[in-house]
Structures are given as C-alpha cells and as structure tokens.
Amino acid sequence: MKYQIDILRSDKTAHISYFQTFFYETDDPSENILHMLQTVSDDPAYKDRDGNLLGEIGFECSCLQKRCGACAMRINGEAKLACGARLSYYKKGRIRLEPLKKFPVVRDLIVDRSVMQDSLKKVEAFRQQEISLPKETDFLAQEASRCLQCGCCLEVCPNYLEGESFLGAAAMVPSARLVLEESPEAAEKVSKSYRKFLYEGCGKSSACQDVCPAHLPLDKLWAHANAAEVWHRKGRHKKAYE
C-alpha cells in the first residue's frame, strides 16, 4: 500500500516551517512510523512529492519498541509514540506528522522536553528517607515507575501550559509515589509541593490516562495519592510500608 505522509518540517535557526509531502510504500502490516522515518531519512536519494530531496529528518528515537518515550509526536493530531504506531492502522493512507505542540520545537519533529526534568526538580521528586521493601510486591509502585517521561500526557492536558504553576501528570507520577511511600515526617515537603503544583491544578479529566502510551493506571494513582495527601487517609498502600 502507498501512504501519503505530510510532515511539518522546521528549522529554528532559519525561522522556517512548512509541510512537506512524500510517499512511502509498504505491504508489511507491522511497519511503524518511526521505522519509516528512519528508512527515508537514512536514504540520501529519497525524494518528496515535488521531486526535492527529503534530506535528514529531525526526530528522536532510541528503543524502537515503545519503552523509552523518545519518539513521541503528533500523528494525525494525536500524541503518540511513533514506534508504536503502525502505518496499517491508518486505513485511508494519509498520515500527518507534527512535533508535540506544548514544547519548544528544536528541528522538524524534535522538541525540547527539558521542562519535564525541571518540573521534577521543582517539586523535589526524590526520597527524603531510605525505605525497605513492603510486605508484598507493590504493584502500584511498579506501575508508577514505568513512566516514560514522554510528554504525551502534557500534550493533551487541558490544564497544563508551560510556565504556569500546574506541572502536569508527568511530574505527578513520581510525586504520587513519594506521597504514598514516605513516612509522614519525610513526606512533609513533597506533600506541600504535591498540593501546590499538582493536586490543586488538576481538573481530573483523565485525558492523560487515555493517551498514556505506557498505559499507566493514572486515575488509580491519583486516587490513592489524593486520599493519603488531601484527606490524610492512610490507604492500604501506605500501611504496607509501616
């Protein structure tokens, strides 16, 4: 099948951005958008619809198997991991690729997501005290540790905007874990920032959960953390660590 790909190309230093269209043919039902980008970008002779050379396309990737979060982008308007998006899913054969919109664009599909690292520093998402293992495997902690820091949740969140006080789901995940696991004294600090930068800004619309490519149980995580934090309710969860 032949796919028409429209890709938003931009170069910050040259202050230009434009849509470029090219065609890509494959019959492999497992072919994904990231591998397609690798293939055309590595081919110095690949041409666009108008006969111009495509040249190297800017995009980030690493694992190629949905485990590292590098390749998040907008595919037909939806925030997704390109390596987890198969071309065959797009039955109409037209695919539009754009960089995530909530982050500054570096080049083509690359955006600068360092604000996510900054947010985690701002809420001081690190442990104040050492812990020991709970009585039984802590599946919720395992889930929360799987966050890819890909940024898809920030992209769809109605309440998140870079520079404003609410820091979004990506910062909430590690903080929620701390709220749940630290002892009351140690949790004091993270509790304060959890409330201020996270809980109070979140409209609980769950858009983040729907988009999360790692399928993190965000609703459940918020529910537990909020119960512990806001209503000082000791969840089953917290008890496991005492």
Partner: peptide, 16 residues
C-alpha cells in the same frame, strides 16, 4: 537499590 526505592517483587519484606 532496595533502600532507594526499587519496587522489586517482594514477599515478607524480602526480595523474591
């Protein structure tokens, strides 16, 4: 690793 919070598979506070 356990002290810094790696949630290993656990039983009776010990890693399985």
């Amino acid at each position: 690793l356990i002290r810094i919070g790696v949630p290993f598979q656990a039983r009776d506070r010990q890693p399985v």
